[in-house]
Design a protein around this nucleic acid. Structure first.
Lengths: 367, 367
DNA sequence: TTGAAAGCGCTAACAG
DNA sequence: CTGTTAGCGCTTTCAA
């Protein structure tokens, strides 16, 4: 009785309603050009309902040569902590417009021929478009087969090979983080950055190129607030707990130690927490911390809970899917070969790790 | 030139090879019943290669009424930390056998009609089978539509509604964890368990029913090693950092405090770490800790790194996919309506949080 | 050893 | 306003 359960086809409905298959098709697809009497409509509708008819999208796809399928290629889904969010965001956007998601994992460690096969399995399925979510934004093997099917990159650092991409405005992250700290009254703010792309085969998502951009945004954000370079000491390390610990130690051992810390991600913030504890600094009383990425599970479970400046990956994926579908439907004037789409900005998730600096008489804002 | 890129069909190949479409189909599908001369075979093969022919699986599906598509329903993909692993495992298993994955997210907070629509979108696509990954093993809304299509549950606690499931043998977790601690020489081992299903709307994956089972396995594991109940004090709490902290405090404030702790998951272990620090106990010198779930990112980034007893969700998903495909192909004697499949057992990931107890003269094993 | 032809369920001209 | 009909690209009897 449930939709699609039996081999009930359009002609069964037609027979039951006493009309032709054309009429059924027209009614069910709400074809505007076809003028059908209301009572016939109703008859068809109820017959379809009675029989539990559901359209066979395979047949429809064969006929129209549109599958309404979006291929989603996820690099290293097993280790990408945002894989679930990406699927969620893309799926919601897709289903809202009648599409579905065909998902394949692709392993960066696999050879080029294997990776090519990953994408070709989607092409064999005749997906209408492809969403490609790289593990590290900024790098992209880009199988040549992309050429044939409209493709949009999810969270890649800008347009690659002429393929459009949806990426966050990376500088907005440091800006928001620095702003949060400045607002709390801090004037000496340190930055713990990711130590370059070389060390980035670890567990984190947005390293590599993104690391550079985040780091780049930091002095800019400070300068914009009227501070000179000395106000913002920077240390970098591996984008994990150890790296964060070492960098934080360097920063906090200084004579003019910062009272606020911006960390590249929450793993590095974990290290900063430990460094602070080792040195006898309480967070947030003696030291405030903000991280530039939110692994959810981690930030919320640190003690005190970590304030972050996050970019919901689901949002990114949903936007990419939207752009892709616009292109497929020719809806947008936006040509796919146009420049990179403006990505969403980071937003602050205030938790418990920011307070006024210890020597501040009066805080300068809310936090 | 790449596969599937153009509208090159079987008849183009036939024309190029100077044979009929039937022959092309026979050759390319390696139909055994058809006797085709080797040279014809070769001609067809090279023509197909030349033209960059790729089969149109939409047409094939329409004809054979088999899509070779597996629907994967993930509950709450955005918050399920194992979503990526599940996709990975299912995808690998599926692709190895010529299948692809159609993934949909389903939100436990959505109404029943919305959730039904989630599954029906898969049925409309005519997926051959469905993999259903619940957020919390043990509960299952089970849309009635499942009836029509073979379905296997991923990481559900046993067969539900007659639907087969692949679940880990939960008791093997506590057994391995306790074994690890016993092996290191500990004799007083505490257990920090999840505080029941009521509190489990949090961030973790395998709570609820699984919590009960893990807790149940603990005394059994101890008893099996020859200890009576008193050797294993148990405290429970919310399955997060706060809950773990509180439970650990209770355990460590005791006169006869345990020297080893088994935690329900690594979030609770984070709390135990903090409790130990507050009380001046160093890990692993004064206290050893093992957790029963591995969030990877977290366990590896604690300090010291947390030893866990983990169950790779990818493995679970791959097994479920395997069972499903066996059923679809009638390969297995295993009827789908048979009992729950035996799941994989937990395995120990030794990191740095286990050492001999402080008063041990000589450790009893390797760790 | 190979080919002709039917038809999977649907959509979209084109006639009525 | 509604129906006839020709395929979409492929597999698969059945004949040759």
């Amino acid at each position: 009785l449930s939709i699609g359960s039996r081999n009930i086809g359009i002609k069964d409905v037609a027979a039951a309603a006493g009309v032709s298959v054309t009429t059924v098709s027209h009614v069910l697809n709400e074809v505007t050009s076809a003028r059908i009497s209301p009572e016939t409509r109703e008859r068809v509708r109820s017959a379809a309902g009675q029989l539990g008819y559901g359209p066979n999208s395979v047949a429809r796809a064969l006929r129209t040569s549109r599958t309404a399928l979006l291929g989603l290629v996820i690099e290293d889904a097993g280790r990408n902590p945002h894989a679930g969010q990406i699927v969620l965001g893309a799926d919601e956007a897709a289903r809202a417009r009648g599409y579905n998601l065909l998902v394949v994992n692709t392993s960066p460690s696999a050879g080029p021929e294997a990776r090519k096969a990953d994408v070709e399995s989607l092409l064999m399925r005749r997906v209408d478009g492809i969403l490609y979510a790289p593990r590290h934004p900024g790098q992209l093997p880009a199988p040549p087969t992309f050429r044939n099917v409209p493709t949009v990159l999810v969270n890649a650092a800008g347009t690659q090979n002429g393929i459009p991409a949806v990426a966050p405005e990376e500088e907005s992250g440091p800006r928001a983080a620095v702003g949060c700290l400045l607002g709390a009254g801090h004037t000496r703010i340190g930055f713990i950055s990711s130590g370059g792309a070389a060390s980035c085969d670890g567990a984190n998502f947005a390293e590599g190129a993104a690391g550079q951009e985040r780091a780049g945004g930091f002095p800019a954000a400070l300068a914009q607030a009227g501070f000179d370079g000395g106000a913002g000491p920077v240390e970098s390390g591996q984008p994990d707990e150890r790296g964060g610990y070492a960098a934080a130690r360097s920063l906090l051992d200084r004579e003019d130690r910062p009272t606020g810390l911006v960390c590249h991600n929450d793993l590095m913030a974990m290290g900063a927490y430990r460094a602070a504890a080792d040195l006898g600094f309480a967070i947030p009383r003696d030291l405030s911390v903000v991280a530039l990425a939110d692994h959810g599970l981690i930030a919320a479970n640190l003690y005190p809970a970590l304030t972050t400046v996050a970019l919901p990956p689901a949002e990114l994926a949903a936007r990419a899917a939207g752009i892709l579908m616009d292109t497929l439907e020719g809806t947008a004037g936006t040509n796919l070969s146009a420049g990179p789409a403006a990505g969403p900005a980071y937003t602050l998730i205030a938790r418990g790790s920011v307070a006024p600096p210890p020597d501040a008489a009066t805080p300068r804002g809310n936090f």
